[in-house]
Structure formats: structure tokens, C-alpha cells
Design a protein around this nucleic acid. Structure first.
Lengths: 345, 345
DNA sequence: TTGTAGGCGTTATCAG
DNA sequence: CTGATAACGCCTACAA
């Protein structure tokens, strides 16, 4: 291993001068800087990250805390966070947190001084991890939102806006009777997970503001529930002409099975998928219309927010909401002139 | 931050004694050990990872090098590797490598002394990264296999065995005319990616050993190619009664669209998915029969292999192949007595 | 602009 | 079994 001292010797300068040019931390005469750079190149020097971290008290490592649950738009976002971090000279370590002793693990993480800051995903509306990070005074950024957000950096999907856009897009095509499908997370480790909650709430508000008719289903993940949903929908919400689905399995199942029930998609029923991967779209025929989860954008924004906080003493609070852009498909159409709504609002 | 020295003071021992009990590196009298542990608990001491790394020349950090390509069974495996690492006191950092200057980036990674070892994924048959890691004498483990494997630790899916099992399972049901679908990766960044290659090769060998009739299609990812494949299959391989698919999109498309062409699944056509996520199975009706990619097992085995290499001076080469277990679904059936095979082998 | 020297918190060697 | 005491490689006042 080549050390700074060796570089210094070869360039005939002191070790601090090498440090100055490596870190660009103090002005150095072009001539000497050149000598140093040359020596570095000759020797193939790279500064030792551990030594740097120890001396500077900055590790340039970020932790992505993540509970090992069922992920939704998972790794596009992880990739993007890692890449963004790298672009800024940071590294991202994955920090699985699957104990029931979450707070003590977080304490360890921080006190071990391995990381400069923390990215927290799969945030719940009330999240003890957030509270704990706060009391530890550890720099952190949420991917998601807790209920209470004062003084917290976060980046999240703008579910509210996405739901609104989707509703308006459908309403513009004449749909007046809408159904929202969200995952039923009650009783699972994801209970308290915010997205379904926020979507449902936004849906309720917007539907009533627009004087539309809306129905919400919370559906679990058991096969029976999923595949049986098409029938249930037709039975319990017969007037519905459009489904907004935030439940991948159900979305696909609907497109694939409704035709077997004599319901044409999109002729008789429009279906849009909310906050899901675009690739979902390719799995059905016709292709599912998707409001695509901006996983990469969220990952990037979150990493940048955290780094800004770490480096800028006075960085403004990052409170970023990113809506899901529409990725058109073939599962949306205008309501038929002679709608099949016999009941309806 | 609490330091070892403070612990030592409070326990009235020397700093080295604290180190001995913390690392369990030398015998210590129960009495003093107790005092030290008590002091640690009182003060909430945690050893500083950077200082430890610097002094011991071991960071306990593993890098997962990953090119930002299209992943298949991606993050179940990343999760599992991270978790396994954590269980052994290691951390996993994500190391995106998207430059065209791969070898120099790897050199940096190693010389920066940030990590003790490297996990390499999405390995190609000929992989310059592997060659480079080797010349750098960096400890590494492959997830996947290069063509040349002498003296290399690797963990991979056992594609050969999985293909064999799938063929035999189908043959036992009377299928004699099989079709394999793999991704066409030529011309993409994944060209040279081994799985399709290995599957195709194994398929060819086993089919001929069993005296069956086999056909292979390489299909890309453009929507037209994927959705049009059902028709192409019926046209170009009319005698086929079973499809082995290693192409998620095609697998789903077949199950979803063949019925529209009057082909009953599985009555007229059996379909199995090779080395894919089990969850794929829930997206079709009937549920796709899947030979499930053992992502979690691969991740675990890879992390363990690398750690064994790092810690055991004499650890035997880890050369692990994990077959894909069958996750039964509803897309496989026996060939009908009066088969529709008019041509056939 | 450049050099000197004292840490950063641990580990590890070597005495005792 | 326990304690001094050098490293580990770099950063950063402070001095020159």
C-alpha cells in the first residue's frame, strides 16, 4: 500500500502538502501541485479511506436502513441512491434491521461511527426509528413520510397528486364512478405503512370534491383474495367504470381475468395502476396504463438531500414530493355512450 | 463519543484490557472482565469501526459490485447477502460500476482499503472484472460463473440441473416436443451474460440425450417481439406441447394470450418458468408453474463463502451451484392422449 | 505557500 | 493475566 508519506518523499514535499492537493483544501503552487500529482500517478497512490475517516471524523458512508419486508418499487431506487452517493464521493451500505430491538441497533449504528448519515425507507406513519434517530441527533433523510414532519428531511412519492391526476384523467373521459384498490396491510408487518393510507385519503377527498362516486377496496395478498377480486368488484361495485389500483397483483389479475367475465378492458372497464413499476405494463394485454413510481428520482433526491445536510451547515430542509408520471397503455378508454351503469351515483 | 480509554478508566484497567474483552482476544479474569463489561454498559460504549479498521487492517466491509443493468431476480439476493454479512459482523456496501473504465475503478476500490473483499454479480462468461480482481489479489466471490473457473470462489444458480429437472418432469407427463425460450441478450450490455447461454446449452444436451425434440427461441424485450411470440410459437413450432421459459415477459404473455388463440393452458400447452421469482406465479391464471430462482440462498452462500475466505486462511474453494426448486402451479399437465402433434419429432 | 507535530480510537507486540 | 506503548494513515491547527 502506497501512503501519503511515500508520495511526499517522491515529490520532495511534506506530507501535508500532499494532503492539501489531494483534498484541495489549501492553495498550492501549480509547480508543486504538479510534482505531487505526478508522484501520485507514478506510485498509484489512493488515500486510505479508513485513515481519512478516523482523522477527519467523516466516513463518507451512508447507511440505508431497511427492514426486510416486502418491497414494492424496490431496487431501482436503491440503485439510484447508491449511484448518486458515489457521484458525490459517498458510499452506501445496506443496513438490514430485522430485530425487535430496533432502537438499540440504531444506537449501535450511530455510535460505531461507521456512517455519516442515514437513509430510512419504508417509513410508517408513526415510526419509532425516526424518533430515535432524532434523539440521537443523527443526520437522516426519510424516504416516505411520518405523520409529523416538522424539521425532517424527506423525499416521497406524491401520492396525493398522483391520485388526483389519475382521477382527473379518468373524469375527463367521462368516468364518474371510480374504484380504488389498495393493499390491505393491517395485521402485517407493514401495518402503518403510509402509502395505502395516503392514497385512500386523497381518493376520498378528491372524489367528493369532484362530486364523483368512489368506492375503496382493501385487498390482501392471498391468492384467493386476489384472483377473486374481479368477481367481487362486479358484484359489489357494479356501476364502476374505472379502477385505480395500487396493488400490483390485483391490477394484473383484473386485466387478465375480466375479459373471461365478459367485461372488455378498456371498453367496459378502464384500469390504471398507481405508483408501480413501468415494467408491469408489459405483462398484460392490452398493456396496463401505469402511473409510474419514480423510484430512481426518489433515490437520487434522497441521497442528495442527505448529502446536502451533511455538507451544508445551513442546507434548507428538503421536503420533496415527486408525482408519478403517466406511462400510457391500453387499459384506459372513454366511457361508452350508453354506459352500463344501471345503479351508479 | 465514548472511547475505550474512558471505559478503561471507569473499570480501573488499562486500555488494552478493555480491548481484550471487547474482542475476546486474550484471556481475562472473570472479575475484571465483569468490571469492564459493566463499565461498557454504563457508558454505552461501542467501538469505533474506523479506528478498529485502521489499526487492524480489516474493515469488515464487503463490496457488492454491480453494474447497473437490467436485473432479474435482483434484490432478494442483495437483501440476503446484506443480512448474512451482518450476522457475521460485516457490512455490505453497494458499489455501482457504470464506467467504461471498470478496471481502474476496481483498482481504486481495492486500494482505498475500504473493503475487505468483493462480491461480483452479473458475471459474464469472459469478464474483465474477474481478471482484474485476480491480478489485484483481492479476495472475491462470484455470483455467477465465468467460463474459466480455476481457483475461483463462486456461487451460482444451477441452470443445468434445473433445466434437466424441468425436462424430466415434463417428459414424465408425456411431453416429447419441447421449446426453450431464452432472452436474446446479443447486442445489449448483457451480451455474454451466462444464464441464457448455459440454459440453452444444457437444453440441447439433455433433449438429445433423452431423445426428445427440442427447439430454442431467443427473444428480446421489445413489446412486439414479446406479445407476438405466441403466434410465432404456434407457427414455427406447431408440434410443441411444452414451453420452458427463461424470459419473464414471454412466460406471462404466453399464459395470458394463448387462450385467446384457442390454445388451452395447460390442456394444449404446458408452460414452466425457469429461474424466476416465485411471485411471478401469482400474476397469471392459472398460476404459472415456476422453478424458483433461489435468490436468497445464493446471496447467503456467496456472502458466507467470501467471509470464509477472508477469515479462514485455508478455506476450501467454494464452488456452489444451487438448483431452482419447483414451485408448482397450474400451467403443467400431461399430454393429451390424442395429441395435437401432427408433425413432431 | 509549505512544513511540523499532535491527534483520531484501536489493535497488537512485548514486557512484566 | 495485565499494562505500556508503538503503530495504523491521514487531517489540521499552528508555525515558519
Amino acid at each position: 500500500m502506497v501512503t501519503m508519506q511515500q508520495v511526499a518523499d517522491r515529490a520532495r514535499v511534506s506530507i501535508s502538502t500532499v494532503s492539501f492537493v489531494v483534498n484541495d483544501t489549501k492553495p498550492v503552487t501549480p509547480a508543486t501541485r504538479e510534482r505531487v500529482l505526478q508522484a501520485i500517478a507514478d506510485l498509484g497512490y489512493r488515500r486510505n479511506s479508513m485513515a481519512r475517516a478516523l482523522a477527519s471524523r467523516k466516513t463518507h458512508i451512508l447507511a440505508l436502513i431497511y427492514p426486510m419486508l416486502d418491497h414494492r418499487y424496490p431496487h431501482r431506487f436503491v440503485e439510484s441512491a447508491a449511484t448518486t452517493a458515489a457521484e458525490h464521493g459517498y458510499n452506501l451500505v445496506l443496513w438490514p434491521l430485522h430485530s425487535n430491538n430496533v432502537t438499540s441497533e440504531i444506537t449501535s449504528l450511530i455510535q460505531a461511527a461507521l456512517v455519516d448519515g442515514v437513509l430510512l425507507m419504508e417509513v410508517q406513519l408513526e415510526d419509532e426509528r425516526v424518533a430515535h434517530l432524532r434523539t440521537m441527533e443523527a443526520p437522516f433523510t426519510l424516504i416516505g413520510r411520518t405523520r409529523e414532519l416538522d424539521g425532517i428531511d424527506y423525499v416521497d412519492i406524491d401520492f396525493e397528486r398522483t391520485v388526483e391526476t389519475a382521477i382527473d384523467d379518468l373524469a375527463a373521459l367521462g368516468h364518474r364512478d371510480l374504484t380504488l384498490v389498495v393493499e390491505d396491510v393491517s395485521g402485517t408487518p407493514l401495518a402503518g405503512y403510509a402509502p395505502p393510507f395516503r392514497a385512500e385519503q386523497a381518493f376520498g377527498e378528491i372524489v367528493s370534491a369532484r362530486r364523483l362516486h368512489g368506492r375503496v377496496f382493501r385487498i390482501g395478498h392471498r391468492a384467493r383474495e386476489v384472483t377473486g377480486f374481479a368477481d367481487r368488484l362486479l358484484r359489489e361495485a357494479p356501476a364502476t367504470t374505472a379502477v385505480l389500483g395500487m396493488h400490483d397483483d390485483v391490477n394484473l389479475a383484473l386485466v387478465n381475468t375480466l375479459p373471461h367475465r365478459g367485461i372488455d378492458v378498456p371498453g367496459d372497464m378502464s384500469i390504471v395502476s398507481l405508483a408501480t413499476a413501468r415494467s408491469l405494463s408489459e405483462l398484460t394485454e392490452p398493456a396496463l396504463t401505469v402511473y409510474e413510481a419514480p423510484g430512481a428520482e426518489v433515490g437520487r433526491a434522497a441521497a442528495e438531500a442527505l448529502i446536502a445536510r451533511l455538507e451544508g451547515r445551513d442546507a434548507p430542509r428538503a421536503q420533496v414530493l415527486i408525482p408519478c408520471p403517466l406511462h400510457p397503455g391500453g387499459t384506459v378508454a372513454a366511457v361508452r355512450p350508453r354506459a352500463r351503469s344501471s345503479s351508479g351515483s
